[in-house]
Nucleic acid binder design. Structure first.
Lengths: 159, 159
DNA sequence: CTATGTGCAAAGCGTTTGCAGTTAG
DNA sequence: CTAACTGCAAACGCTTTGCACATAG
């Protein structure tokens, strides 16, 4: 499921501004990687970004994807997360949200739920440290995989 | 913080039984890896297990650690988790629990809190899939790192 | 004894890095 | 123009695998 057009454009402009503010050049490679990350809700990994951008810039290299993604993370425009084992995945949704991860296909869905946001470090965490963020991770089987029992969409290790 | 002696012995016996039940041999290498995983609450990675077991069996190889850990995961005695970026970490605590992860040193603490267990898939997740497990991840700075501001205990990438 | 497990070394995957040529500003 | 960026290839860290020897049962 792609990000709504307006939201995507907003994100793209924000990232471009951040790059410019750092005095970094807006090369067409960078712009396409930015568009790819900003426009996806699937928390894509570097390989997926690379594959998709390659349809537009066939000469782009994986290195540029990795470097641009790392830059966006540094700039705070994107977060890296390890939702599944295997490659790091990039998330352009900066709103506070939670995740549902399919144990069969590895697909990830954002979950925005004010009820989950209430989960706060309670007495149990006292003495352990100071909590800065709370993320709820739901694991299960996505509706798509439930329908096609047995078949896996992508070969990604579960958990 | 090590696991309580009795609990550790219970876990060790459970794992040995599971290995026997599968017709697998209880080699001294396997037993030491089992003891190491069962006795740690720190969610150690393969390298840490390897380093510690090596003090008892100097000739053990990393491969055996990986293989034994993989076997224990298959047998359901241990779970693999990626709490931080970097190496997979093993968790011998099968009780339902949550995690606090220090963003500075990467240390992980188990959190058992019935209040957190109440977090359930609410309306928001409807239509996404069927939820099987819920894990709450708290991120922040552990008390130890708060005390020694600036210094990091271990060099592990945060988040 | 003999099937299983071990250590070794080599390969695998995802990712990072040094370099020389390329390009945005 | 020239500093910044790219693509390449090589290196990296973590993990898995094929093989011949070693050992638990």
């Amino acid at each position: 499921m792609p990000v709504a057009h307006d939201e995507m454009e907003r994100r793209v402009e924000e990232m471009k501004d951040a790059l410019r503010a750092r005095g970094m050049r807006l090369t067409h490679q960078r712009i396409e990687v930015v568009r790819e990350i900003a426009g996806s809700e699937a928390h894509p990994d570097a390989e997926t970004i690379y594959r998709n951008v390659r349809t537009r810039i066939p000469t782009i290299s994986r290195d540029t994807v990795y470097r641009t993604a790392a830059t966006l993370v540094e700039l705070g425009c994107v977060t890296r997360t390890t939702l599944t084992h295997g490659p790091v995945r990039y998330d352009a949704n900066l709103e506070h949200h939670h995740h549902f991860v399919c144990m069969r296909c590895g697909a990830a869905h954002d979950i925005v739920d004010p009820a989950l946001d209430k989960v706060r470090a309670s007495a149990s965490s006292a003495g352990i440290g100071s909590v800065e963020t709370v993320e709820v991770r739901l694991r299960g089987v996505c509706t798509e995989c439930e329908r096609s029992t047995g078949t896996t969409r992508r070969s990604r290790r579960k958990t």
